[in-house]
Every structure is written in C-alpha cells, then in structure tokens.
Design a protein around this nucleic acid. Structure first.
Lengths: 251, 251
DNA sequence: GATTTTTGTTCGTATAACGCACATAAGAAG
DNA sequence: CTTCTTATGTGCGTTATACGAACAAAAATC
C-alpha cells in the first residue's frame, strides 16, 4: 500500500472512538486529546464530526457516545458468517451441558466473544458478543494462543498485561508457554479460577475442513458445582462433538 | 458548528464500515463504492486504511471486517453507565419471570439492545447488546415511540419500512399512532406475535428520577406458553417493580 | 482577587485527500 | 479469439484538512 492510500483523518477518528470505553463515558476535548495523543484541534474536529453524524452527544463540555456506534460493531456480527454459523451449535451445546457456552476469536492480546448461549449468570461480569477478555487467562485464549506458532504466541504474551486476577492466575510467560504446549498436545484447555474466583472453564479449538483454527468454543461452570478436574470428563465429549460438527460446515 | 470543523474523511470512513452488514460479509471496492455512493478512489483509500489498522482483511479482491471493529461498539457499551446499571436489575427480572428480559434505547427507526438477560431461546433470531429491531413492531419500540412527542413518533413511523413480518403485524401508520396513544395512557405495551409468530412481549419505559425516559425494558415469552392477554397480569407487576427500582438509581 | 494552569477556539499555511481521467487488468458474452 | 463490459490502480490539479502557534476563556491554585 502506498502511503498516499492511507486516510489519516479516518484513522484518527477511529482512535477517538476507542478512547471512550477505556475510561469514563464522557470525555472533554482535552481528555480525548491526551488519550489519543492527537492535537486538541484535530480531536475537536473528530468529536464534532461524530456529534454531527449522531454517533456522539455534545453538551458544550462533554462528549458521550450514542448507541449509534453499536451499528459499527454490528456491521461485523451481521456480516460475518462465522458467528451466525456457530450460534445454533452453541445453543445445542449449552442446552446439553446445562452451562453457558461461548465462541470467540483472537484480537491482539484479547479474546473477543463472537457468539454466546448463556444459562444462568455465574460470572460477575456479563459477557456478550463483542466482550473482551485477556487471552492469557481465559480457556479460549489458551486454545487460540496454542494454535499460533510459538513465536507469535510468545509475542502476544509479551505484549499482554499479565496480572493476577486471582491467586490462581498464571502470570509467568515461561509457565504460560509451557501450558500452551500442553494445550497443543491435549487439544483442549482448562482454566481453574484464573480469571475469577469460583469460575472454571474448558475450551477447544474450532477448525475449518482444512484444519485452520478459526475460533474457539468453551463451556463455563461454577467451581462450586464442577471441580476443575471434572471439567474434562464432563464436558470434553460434548465440546469435541460440537467441534466435529462445526468442522464439517466451515470451509 | 462551522463547516471546517467537519472531517469528511472520517465521516466517509464510517459510512464504509456501515456498508458491510447491510449486505454480504465481503465487499469489493466497487461494491462498497456503490453502497456508500462515494467515489471508488475514496472508498479504496478508506478500505486500505481499515486493512492497515487491522479493522479489515484484504485478499487482493475482497475486503471483510475483522472482530476488531467490535471494539468500536464496545467502546459505547463499556463506557456508558446505562447498560451496566440496568444489567443486574435485568438479571433479577429475568430470573423472577423465568423468561428473557432486555433493555433497549431508540436509534432512528430501530430499537437497539443495550443489555439482556436471556433464558432459553424462544426467538429464531439471536438478540444481544447491539442487536436492532424495527421499533414499530417491537414492544420496547412502542414504549419508546410513545414517549416521544406525537410529531416525532409519526416522523419515525414515516421513515420506517412498515412491513408485515407476520399476519398480525400492524403496518398502518394511523393505527400505530392510535396504538401509541393507548401505550402512553396505560404505561406499557404488549406485542402479540407482530415480530415473529409464536412470540409475545411486554415492555415498560424506564425513567430517570426526573421522569425523562431513557430506555425501555421488556419480557418476552412464547405465545404457546403465555397468551398475549395474560402477559400484563403475569409480568406487568414485575416490570413495574423493576422500573421503580431503576428510577431511584438513574439520574 | 490575582496568578497560574488548563482548556477551547481561531487562523494562516504546509500538506494531504479528493475526484476526475486515463491506463490496465480481468471477466463475460458473442 | 475477439469484443464488450466491468473492476482496479495510478497520476495530477484542485480543494479541503491537519498542524502548530497564538489568543481567549475558564478553572484551579494560592
């Protein structure tokens, strides 16, 4: 791509949108300028443009995003076959397991939920398509990282903010890399309360008919109800069955 | 706002993103140019910018959005207090009613889901935060339209594509306006299989402590299980209770 | 209340994007 | 194969945008 084929005004605008979310819902021009590291005048124009298009509200001091920005994310979900294809399989899986089932893909250091069939809430945070979790401490993240070349997986870990969400969270990159090797060998990953106390999950990769890993699916369960050691015996057959069925419909 | 405070490159880029979703997942430069009514060279630059930033993939012929665009919609959901505030109340409501409960706001002619607590799937389509339904035939849409000045509500209906999703769908604007008056008087709206056969729902508005309507909440149930006439007697007390509780926490 | 710091806005200029036109490539129809 | 038709990539003059500094206006601090 030639340098002249890059619309920097567009790229700057997207950065401004992403500046929300990380922090507070309302941003002043100066705050947004700091977060995006752009000139105040530039940020101001982007925000006024967003307001003019209805993507943001402006009360003279603060800018806040409007629900219209959800159209942007929705453009992906409704346009991409993967989430739509996986959803019915997830529903079945969730029903058989009597637990929540989800599907996700990797984006940078995060797993991004693309579909979900939820039973009763067990997590403190609410997950839905578009939600993100750090890959290093999520079962689907482990599976997706394991599917990458070692070098790339290590690179993701190095860029990750490896913090201990619970006393059980593994945060040493070397330990995590070893864990990934185990996941690669066994074909599944189990997380025992590394993300949140009281929550276990198990994940397997989802491949196309040619063996390319395109997503991961998982089942989450309360640790009080299903011990980590039980996760595999109880849910792995169901996950494998779903994985096999998906492999036949994904090209 | 002065004209010079509008970044047209940014606005054009956003239109390009929205061009996906409406149609197929993959777009060529020429297709995107047609959908957005922008110059091919401009669309090409926007798409290459998206690809460069990782918001899109490009195989030399087709562009496809990547999960990264979900960050944009997520910026709203995680930055706006309303969805986060409503969620726990929705969870409770859903549990007590033993049915799915949702919250939404109005965006143009659509209702946009901002939170949801789902029980077993009853609808053919899967709803999650960011999902959109036409306001005229959804219970939350009726409630939200009823909260607008008559003139504005009529305007939304006139801009809507009033199609009969089922034989029961009301599509006459005058009939719908009359319906809105009834909703305004009673304080709730019941939909009897107007969106999808077999599905009933009931909604009430959610207000701030000063009486401004900021969202709507609803409960959906299979028509086979709960007749439309029963919806109010069975679920209205629960909805009103939730509405009252929310009114105390919303400013 | 005066001073310092931060924030929003304006303006001239260098620069980058726009959109047209042309060239090239890839399919579709004959 | 040839001939249309349609799609993509590039060069360039015109137009519009971003930059940075300077000014104005608030806040915040003293």
């Amino acid at each position: 791509m030639r340098e002249s084929d890059f619309v920097s005004g567009f790229a700057r605008g997207l950065r401004v949108i992403e500046a929300f979310g990380e922090t507070r819902p309302k941003l002043t021009i100066a705050e947004a300028a700091k977060l995006t590291e752009l000139d105040r005048a530039t940020v101001r124009r982007c925000l006024l443009t967003l307001a003019d298009l209805g993507y943001a509200d402006y009360d003279g001091k603060f800018f806040a995003l409007t629900p219209k920005v959800l159209r942007l994310g929705h453009a992906y979900l409704s346009a991409t076959p993967l989430p739509l294809l996986i959803q019915p399989y997830l529903d079945q899986l969730s029903e058989k397991a009597e637990q929540s089932a989800s599907a996700s893909v990797l984006d940078g250091t995060d797993v991004v939920y693309i579909a979900r069939a939820s039973q009763k809430r067990v997590m403190s945070i609410n997950l839905s398509p578009g939600s993100r979790l750090p890959a290093y401490c999520a079962s689907m993240g482990r599976v997706l990282l394991a599917s990458l070349p070692e070098r790339d997986a290590r690179d993701v870990l190095d860029r990750s903010d490896l913090k201990a969400n619970t006393p059980l969270t593994k945060t040493d990159p070397d330990v995590l890399m070893e864990e990934l090797r185990a996941v690669r060998a066994s074909g599944y990953a189990v997380i025992d309360q590394e993300l949140e106390l009281g929550l276990c999950s198990i994940a397997v990769p989802v491949e196309t008919d040619r063996g390319r890993v395109v997503a991961a699916i998982n089942i989450g369960a309360p640790a009080a109800h299903v011990a980590a050691a039980e996760m595999a015996t109880r849910y792995l057959p169901l996950l494998m069955e779903t994985r096999k069925a998906l492999r036949l419909v994904l090209r």
